[in-house]
Design a protein around this nucleic acid. Structure first.
Lengths: 188, 188, 188, 188
DNA sequence: CATGAATGAGGCTTCATTCAT
DNA sequence: GATGAATGAAGCCTCATTCAT
């Protein structure tokens, strides 16, 4: 009654994909291995063969996501109009920010590995922030960005725009409008 | 016409205050009546005499908070420089936004009361959004706010600034700088 | 907001009446002082001024009920056709039997008083049984009741008829038909 | 195609058996998974792997029991002296009736499954009643059962005899005596 | 490895009962 | 006495995690 062989080896790909959609659907509180296993079509205990602890899985997944974004930021920072490129990037990763919200709820003490992953995450976030700040500093030096406001505040503004809801318009027009606003805000 | 039963040991004030700090410390996942009771120095079951369900308490508390903010927004909207006043308000209620993040995790089906509270919250949030939009529209008509950008996007920008971290500076300088940026962004 | 004086002194009458209806509605499992207090329109704690324990109240009430029935049985036993009279009595006290069902669930150890009440109940039930048996014995001696069957079994039959549902007919026709059956069953 | 996970330590048989004895000992009010688990020598939570709610287990068990009885009734109804056979059946399932007493205390709203099980139970009880009525009707047509009494009342009498206590005698003599009484009651 | 079963820890709730006014 | 508030004990239930196959 039901499948009985055990072919369905799962890949990290599938795991992370399932984790993402579950995290977005249910948030941290609703993120259970039970639901995850169902999404993947495997037994709950199978997941333990890959990740020994819920927190390890979640944080590993987040590190993975952040890594991806940071990589793309490097490309964006090198473009002609880096601020525009960054905001476009934000439009594409709107979910990510939502996911990061769960960070404060994760029990760091769950295991060594968790602690390491969390540190890595903070480091990556810091890196993101710095990349933005670097871009702004560069643009400031070139006279294209104002100097009367703390760089940190402007960085905060840019990072916060990720929160502006996308859904009343297309992603493209969202980033176009938001960029217009931001560039006027920070222009020298 | 005097008191007749035992005198209450905790006030709703205290309850809401404890709820707020717990919610901020621990997030929704870590919000237990157990922890709350400890914070208040009463038995867990005592809280059930006031609120029959965790969700009811949390949502009631949030409605309370939102109500307060909405009230203050009315005053802010009537001031000389309403946008500045609004952003100052944001600075003072930075926590609130963080609290609202937990909304998606609340089980609406927990009870009728919860559903009602949630509806009230959505309504209040909508009201907030509209108050901002009204201010912007008024300023636009007076020629002080640009017309080439969707009002909704600008509203989104203002609401999102609540996310810009306050803690690397004083609240006053935070709101001053943020206001400078925002006003340059939306100026006609 | 709500009555505030404390006039509503309650009588044992009212208490027992409320207890009966609650017991029938909700059974022992659903018999809570909370519900009882609501029925009576007093505070929960008020009941404790009369009965110090749930079990004491329930058992006291049952003793009261049983006493009433036993009294009426004496009258019935003295009538022309005592078996018919008894069965008519049964029809009128159909509820009582339902109430007795809860006896096994009562925690005898709850208090001394409870133990005493329970003993009294058993004694009264025994008395009932004996009264029926006496009647049957008397009738047997008079040649109106068969002697090939153990008196206890016939007594059991009569006591069990209380279970035959009344609601598909009137109480009067119920007792008439049941009496016909019983009298044919036990006739000499 | 062999077993793959751990082998179950308890069978449904054992579960139902334990449930029965607990239900009889403690009644509905005293029926806890805690006590049940102790009886079975497993952890409380283990039972939740089989039945997600107390009410589901109890009702599932009762359906099971009723099914068994109904099946046996078919055999009994086909015998030479069906009424005698039925009453013998009663003797063997004396407990069942006691168990059915708890029905009114079950919270139907506990879950969909509970509701379904309850409906099934009512249906089975109805079926039982009808099988008896059919037998009586058949016997009536054959002139062996009286026609001056409503079939329903006689059916009620037979069903109620289950209440006559067995313990002052052997089961065999119980059913013999009871049958004598009943057959005389209903004889044409 | 994959699985299904078992478990323990921890949070949720509901009363009976006690307190203080 | 009557009350409303506070409490503790007890049962419910849900996972994350571990075990045995």
């Amino acid at each position: 009654m039901g499948a009985m062989g055990r072919l369905p080896t799962i890949t990290e790909q599938q795991l992370f994909q399932a984790a993402e959609s579950l995290l977005l659907e249910a948030g941290y509180a609703g993120f259970h291995f039970k639901a995850l296993a169902e999404k993947l079509g495997v037994a709950r205990s199978t997941i333990y063969n890959y990740y020994p602890k819920k927190e390890v899985l979640i944080t590993a997944f987040m590190v993975h996501q952040l890594n991806q974004v940071v990589e793309k930021m490097d490309a964006a920072a090198g473009e002609e109009e880096p601020v525009r490129a960054l905001i476009q990037l934000w439009g594409r990763y709107a979910n990510m920010h939502q996911m990061l919200q769960v960070m404060p709820y994760i029990d760091q003490e769950a295991s060594e590995k968790v602690k390491k992953n969390m540190q890595k995450m903070f480091q990556l976030l810091q890196e993101m922030r710095e990349k933005i700040m670097d871009v702004l500093a560069r643009e400031q030096k070139a006279g294209r960005v104002r100097s009367d406001i703390d760089l940190k505040t402007m960085t905060g503004l840019i990072m916060s725009t990720v929160q502006i809801p996308v859904h009343h318009q297309s992603e493209a027009s969202w980033s176009k409008e938001v960029y217009t606003l931001v560039s006027d805000a920070i222009r020298a």
